Simulated assay, not measured.
Amino acid sequence: MIRTAAIFGILLAAAACEREAGRELNRAGDFGESTLSNAAVMSGERSFAIQLASRFAKEVPTTINFDFDSARLDQTARSVLDRQAVWIRQFPEVRFRVFGHTDAVGSNAYNKSLGLRRARAAVTYLVSRGISRSRLEAVVSYGETQPLIPTPERERRNRRTVTEVSGFLKRHPTVLDGKYAQIIYREYLESAVPGTTLTAQQSLERTLQ
């Protein structure tokens, strides 16, 4: 009985000294929270798309900007779209949507059209970088209706497109086959400190010897 308690104590100590796989999902750092998050995702309580959208926005720039009354992609815009394309290619199961925006100069109808041209320009470029057009679910123009900087004047920050995760390809072979972890948590196992399991196992073996 004492020996069993000692073994259990060693395993608990080893676990306490290391961090849990997937712990980045838990900002509070409480042990077991990542398992709770995974269970919520698997049961549908937490949206896959919301998690990936947050990751996409964190890891790559989602916005490009345009010159006044133009849908031409400059070098900076192309560089941002290149980064988006690299990220998007890593997740062939995921669909994206591109939103076009303008500043407030010009009529509503004209700006709606201009925002659409900007969104289409971004989509066309992403397709040229190897992204299937079927994965770019829709091209949407908000025109001047959603400014970042409320002003009636010319404002480059309002002249933009924004790329966002919109969902999953319904018939992709890795979707709806029980392998969701391959989609969302590709680095899940790698997030654990190397040697965590080996350390606990070695401690157990040495105790039993």
Rank of each mutant, 00 (worst) to 15 (best):
V94R: 06
V60P: 03
R117F: 05
R154V: 11
E59C: 02
A104D: 10
Q182P: 00
Q90A: 14
Q209N: 13
P194Y: 06
R133M: 05
A181Y: 06
P61W: 09
L126T: 03
I2M: 08
T207A: 15
V140H: 12
Y125R: 03
G106N: 11
F168M: 15
K170R: 12
R3L: 11
F68L: 04
E33M: 02
Q84P: 05
E33W: 00
L52S: 04
E190Q: 12
V105Q: 13
I131E: 07
G143E: 08
V165L: 09
L169K: 09
E137V: 13
R95K: 15
S191P: 01
E20H: 12
L126K: 13
A14S: 09
T207G: 02
N65S: 06
R97D: 02
R118C: 04
P194H: 05
R206E: 03
G106W: 07
Q182W: 13
I64H: 03
N111S: 08
A122Y: 01
R154I: 11
I184V: 14
N111T: 07
K112S: 04
K170S: 08
C17K: 14
T197C: 05
G100V: 14
T145A: 15
F8A: 06
E205A: 10
Q182F: 13
A85C: 07
L169E: 12
G130A: 09
A119L: 01
A71D: 12
